[in-house]
Design a binder for these strands. Structure first.
Lengths: 207, 207
DNA sequence: GAATTCTATGAATGATCGTTCATAGAATTT
DNA sequence: AAATTCTATGAACGATCATTCATAGAATTC
């Protein structure tokens, strides 16, 4: 378990601190993440944060990068698994987001905390933004394909924005009370929206 | 300007501190709200927070209550002004939210900060929740009226959830970069959604 | 295996946090 | 007008914050 070589140790301890940071943020909010809490959750010594990340601030940026990377990898894999068809891929993306909330709760709450912090701390904004545009860009191109295929009289950009807003609203709602949230309702809301704007592609799925 | 009687002073200084708190949260985030910042923004003495609110914690609850009340009064007035017709009232509600962002920015950002804080601090949850359910309840009943009137084959509850998710997504997106946001786009996204699920009531408005 | 280099530790530091309280002054009451 | 009551002030306090650094020990190199 515990690493033997120095190279292993570096990777091991950095990961341990990042995980402890996510835990602390999910449990006590962004401002509740103190070095003392990191010590408590990681079980490591007090000086480890500064040894491995120099400043607490730099650790936080690594945490944010970790969250962004993990989420992107996750939804991209979901799209890759789906059938080679825009409707199937779009649905896989949404299904991934809706179902994700049932297992990966700490990461989502931590992510929302960073997103909120990015409003007043510009240094977090770039990472939040790139993640957002990557996701939105994918949804846009899927919508464009659907519009072309179905001959719908709507702008793909507007449709894509609507879908991402829906998902973000779902996140917020879920985060306030994870126990109340049910994937079934989230799925139903998204499906209603999709079946309404892309009837030829999603109406059958709605019943 | 400055109050002369003690009764006036109480109201005046409490309002001044609440305003300074909103300013501080909007500029530096929830954790950036320190007593020193309150002193800086309000121009009052250091002891005023404890004199008028006992603890900083209680001031924060008053701020949240103030934000919730102001917002509720605002959207209820918008509905009251609209014509006596569910479609008109629903649209007035959405228009209010979309346009609100062009003037009332500090309050919205502060509200989002409280909402985020409520995830890990249960004492804020009640106030966030009641505001949410009051808003959602109104949207639900408006949707129910539209469903009945138009004979749509959708559940009013699901439609209402979709609308609130859309608006919450809009808030989040706008908060990250207020300058980039344009009411026109927000309106377009909402209208696309409404015209798609309630075609008989909103299709004409969409062109 | 000895010498060297880097890692891990936690007590100490200065800064900042929210809160207290003695004091001065203003509003109110007698 | 004098006496009283409450308000406003800001220096001082203990707690906690992130960070530093001398020391011990382990991994690596010679």
């Amino acid at each position: 378990m515990r690493p033997r070589t120095r190279g292993e140790a570096r990777v091991y301890f950095r990961a341990k601190l990042i995980d402890a940071a996510i835990e602390a943020i999910a449990r006590h909010g962004f401002s509740g993440l103190s070095v003392s809490r990191l010590v408590e959750y990681s079980g490591l010594a007090r000086g480890m944060v500064n040894l491995h990340f120099d400043r607490k601030d730099k650790l936080l940026h690594e945490v944010l990068r970790h969250l962004a990377d993990a989420y992107r990898a996750s939804w991209q894999a979901a799209i890759a698994r789906a059938a080679d068809d825009p409707a199937a891929k779009l649905w896989a993306l949404i299904e991934h987001d809706v179902a994700r909330k049932t297992h990966d709760d700490r990461a989502l709450i931590a992510w929302l905390a960073f997103r909120q912090e990015a409003i007043t701390n510009p240094s977090y904004r770039a990472l939040c933004d790139t993640r957002e545009t990557a996701f939105l860009g994918t949804v846009k191109s899927l919508c464009a394909a659907l519009v072309k295929d179905g001959g719908y009289a709507i702008k793909p950009d507007v449709a894509a924005l609507g879908i991402t807003f829906l998902l973000e609203g779902l996140w917020l709602d879920w985060s306030l009370d994870p126990k109340r949230y049910r994937p079934k309702i989230g799925r139903e809301v998204c499906l209603l929206h999709l079946a309404a704007i892309f009837p030829k592609h999603f109406e059958t799925r709605a019943h």
